[in-house]
Amino acid sequence: MIIRRSALVILMCLEIMLSAANLALVAFSRFRLEAGLPDYDGQMLVFFVITVAAAEVAVGLAIVVALFRSRRTIDVTTLTSMSH
């Protein structure tokens, strides 16, 4: 919203944020050894985050396509019909 106004790029940036959280989780799971092995609980959370993110992107892109069909634009600054 600050620099980019395309709904698609906002979704991409969301993926980057989730990936940052994933990287932190994997790093902590490797450094915090659980019974001599990396802590696989953290990697499970990463696995679920990846799965949920994939589902979320599918739904998000469907919403973007529906938006483009009705408005012919995906610029989020022009979508103000609910603001007043």
Binding site: L8, N22, S29, R30, P38, I50, T51, L61
Partner: peptide, 23 residues
């Protein structure tokens, strides 16, 4: 590099493969 091989492969398959093709 953090020896999370499965997560690394899933990252390539799901994100770099499926999600980006969708995008």
């Amino acid at each position: 590099g953090l020896s999370a091989f499965f997560i690394g492969i899933v990252q390539i398959l799901v994100y770099a493969g499926a999600v980006m093709v969708l995008f």
